[in-house]
Design a protein around this nucleic acid. Structure first.
Lengths: 338, 338
DNA sequence: ACTCAACTTGTTAGCGCTCACGGAACACTG
DNA sequence: CAGTGTTCCGTGAGCGCTAACAAGTTGAGT
């Protein structure tokens, strides 16, 4: 079978005109069939589809993007980390976007500073991304966003919940922290200690705020915060300190890996969990149920966050750019550590 | 300042011709400056750069792709999971590719079956991706790749190490398993039990093979395999079984999360680790050092795997499509669980 | 039959870039 | 000064698609 009868061009991907020629119609009709335009006769549509099939034709997205001026591409800026929260979020978002026929292009940055973020956003603008999502969990990352042009829809995830004028989706860190703290208080503990994430993360700040508020509302003493990063190692170090203070009976860790470190410190120091001290985490990592003991923790719903981010972005893409905030409320998963 | 003096077109992104007009040169000269073509006078280059700066010009990638027929885009097909291995790999790859000026577009699939994989690959082909990476850790995923056209460079990661005729990068699962098993044998254990990952994963099969080989070479009894998936939950269940058999003194778990489940099962059944039974994992997840006890495990170097995959893909893109296999050897991280 | 409105299809002109030329300017030989 | 490179720069065509218009076809309503 020879499809290139009228052309000497050798092996090149078939283009719309090739399909048109084979089907005996104009390339525009092919375009109409492809884009589901209503006014095409059924018989013609079938002929075109057959020709597409026969040639193995696949539309060239670059040409379409050039002609329309808009792409089906969503750019995502994320940090280079394997932290559970961000990576689950990313995976959920990619899946949701693909379901809507969008291509997701991820740009990782090594550090969340102003320069890296703006460069990554700029990169996506160069691709003529239809929309951009920035996972901006720190103040520096968020600040970088104030200086990017606003001609392409942009939604930030995990950004500054206080910032106005921006489309934002995040989980309600404060509410989650209140859930955890209240749970410990209700179990009869005098007060609750807190091992915090890095202060420049909104997540960490929000969780700390929720914890503090709950203690203040309950009228109990607010003990000093143990600072840490998100790692099990730093949780372990903080746990070692807390373990030697007999008055510590309840600890709210800013995430599950910190909690894991604390659990180990307690175990080493001979303080039983939950017998002597209760521990509650945050994130509900898949293995949290198999810590020793199984960890009571706060579960943010990343699927919902991703879905909300996509829906917000899509509404921005389709014109109604509203600087809306969507907050997703987490839930408490009770296991045996508290 | 009015840059659109000679045109009534309103607000549109500046194009190459706009820059050319402002700089008093032809659009082709602008193109040459942008692409670092040598034969441009220094003075002209500066004028063009100034015009670019002044207009805030950014090249349109879609137009470039259309004109050249090739994009700077690498398509990745990955499964929708938050498993540590795949997600670290992905992150490392994205970072490496970005460093080389490539755009990475990720397509997640819910399940690793034939249909999903081919659809995802097809999707990337439609984007005219310069190269495609498929993370194909199961037989079904790998099989799907035999039927995709080979006109675009494709490298599989974590695919079937036995498959010929394909560019492949993977970690040497067998070697890692041998390391772990030998370590336990050398510590004086009679034999080593194995909790395996899902049988249809090459990773799991390779680890099991390495374990079995080592035992056979040592001339010791090969106990039955405890089947599991990758989850801590299934590790726990397997651990419960093993814990009640007094002859079990050493367990090699196919990954760290399984090991975590086993650790908990042992702890619940009152069998101390490493006193009564030793446990070794695989992956070296960040928190492995904070399990109770800290986990001895095998560490695959995902950064290297990602770098090799990229380099293989790049050599494919630049013409020398060789069906090369690159195997990355893991190392043993000794902690306290063995 | 004739008119007017659908429906259906084709024609043309770009989108913004690169590639293949060709021509001008400038240097160096002899 | 003609001849020959070499550097520099511009012109025109075309990548494969969509948007806008034009034009042909059908079917109903009168």
């Amino acid at each position: 079978m020879d499809h290139t009868s009228s052309s000497t061009r050798t092996n090149r991907d078939p283009a719309m005109t090739d399909v048109a020629r084979l089907a005996g119609v104009s390339h525009q009709t092919v375009s109409r069939v492809l884009n589901g335009h209503p006014n095409v006769r059924e018989q013609t549509r079938l002929r075109v589809r057959a020709a597409i099939e026969q040639l193995g034709y696949r539309p060239n997205r670059a040409a379409r993007t050039l002609a329309t001026g808009r792409s089906q591409l969503i750019g995502v800026v994320a940090q280079n980390s394997t932290l559970f929260g961000p990576s689950s979020l990313l995976a959920a978002f990619e899946l949701a976007a693909a379901a809507q026929g969008f291509v997701v292009s991820v740009r990782r940055v090594r550090v969340l500073d102003r320069g890296s973020i703006t460069a990554a956003v700029e990169h996506h603008r160069e691709q003529r991304a239809a929309g951009i999502v920035v996972i901006a969990p720190t103040a520096a990352a968020d600040a970088a966003l104030t200086e990017v042009p606003t001609d392409v829809p942009l939604v930030t995830v995990d950004g500054d919940p206080e910032r106005a004028g921006a489309a934002l989706v995040t989980v309600d860190q404060e509410a989650g922290a209140r859930l955890a703290t209240r749970h410990l208080l209700d179990a009869g503990h005098e007060t609750v200690w807190h091992v915090s994430g890095p202060e420049d993360w909104f997540d960490a700040a929000g969780r700390q705020r929720g914890w503090r508020q709950t203690l203040e509302e309950a009228g109990v003493e607010v003990p000093p915060v143990s600072p840490a990063d998100w790692s099990a190692a730093s949780g372990y170090r903080a746990g070692l300190m807390l373990a030697r203070m007999p008055e510590v009976t309840a600890v709210f860790a800013a995430n599950d890996h910190l909690a894991l470190g604390i659990l180990r410190a307690m175990s080493e120091r001979g303080r039983s969990v939950p017998g002597d001290v209760s521990v509650v985490g945050f994130d509900d990592v898949p293995e949290a149920g198999y810590f020793i003991p199984p960890l009571t923790t706060v579960r943010p719903d990343f699927d919902t966050v991703a879905a909300e981010a996509l829906s917000l972005l899509l509404s921005g893409i389709s014109g109604e750019q509203r600087a809306e905030r969507r907050i997703v409320t987490p839930t408490l998963v009770e296991r045996e550590s508290a």
